[in-house]
Amino acid sequence: MSPGNVAVKKKTPPSSGDKQHPIGLDIGTANIVVYMDERTDAGVQMEANAFFTVPSMPNTRKILEDKSVRFFEKENCLHILGTAAETFSNILGGATRRPMENGLVNLREDDGIHVIQAILDPMLPEPVQKDHSLWFSVPGDPIDRQGAVIFNESIFKTYLKGRGYMPRPINEAMAVVMSELSDQHATGIGISMGGGMCNVCFSYLSIPAVTYSIQKGGDFIDQTVGRSVGESATKIKSIKEQALDLGVAPRNNIEHGLHAAYDDLFATLADSLAKGLRGSDNMPRLSQAVPIVLSGGTVLPPGSRERFETILNEIDLPIRIATVMQARDPLYATARGAYLMAAADES
């Protein structure tokens, strides 16, 4: 069943009138972000990239319609979409389902692509004119697996073209560089640490010289710690987002586990930096030190930046690092970078 047959009250995205706004789109494992106009809060929309399935019943359907909850029905099931899915998950128990896993479309979910499209449809305005510029983020190839993301990219490109846009991909971490380092000749390292993966891009004068990804992210932390302490990944995620501070000593087993998982993730990331930068022919020799920018929901806990910097200082890199900083809005940086690329197209 296609999302087009779903009796869903569409949320009307901000009216653009006759004016064409460039659009930046970040389709992440945990969240989908649409960035249209940074001057107003309404220009940025974020929905959880998740869905929650309940049996289809008239009453349930009516409630969802009355509450303007996004859902679609298929095979006697109602699939509640987006952030509402997490809400229902918390209320009713049970885990949300993810259309993406490790940064890529989750092929184990039959309706994964449909869910993503259903979530995106009300978020994206109708194009004002043909070939409305839209840049969307794509992950980098895993460091040891080239070409793994081509399928991912083509899926979204096809969908967005079908919506009437002129979609152009931008590496997720490169988008972070464009968002945060545009005043430094877009030279530096952008790291997007999302739910499913960490994307890394070394950009030199806005040219993505080195890009790769590692298949570890926030979900890895939640699952690892959950298994260690016997709690659900959802609960671990909730604690991680609300109470974790990597700058202070852990107070309980869960926090101990989270600290250890973060250290493992950061160490893996730092090692990959050394390997990825050293092993690339495209890596230029630099006389100046370059900054590193961290973004993504995984670096939201306080102390993340400092913890990563500490671990990074123990690694011998082929370039000098000027500073390790965090994006202004870690959740929106990728989408904002894509937006800026689209805005450059418009001007």
Binding site: Y204, L205, S206, I207, P208, A209, D281, N282, P284
Partner: peptide
């Protein structure tokens, strides 16, 4: 390699 060429040009 395209990336190298772009780096030189930039």
């Amino acid at each position: 390699k395209t990336v190298r060429g772009q780096i030189i040009a930039k």
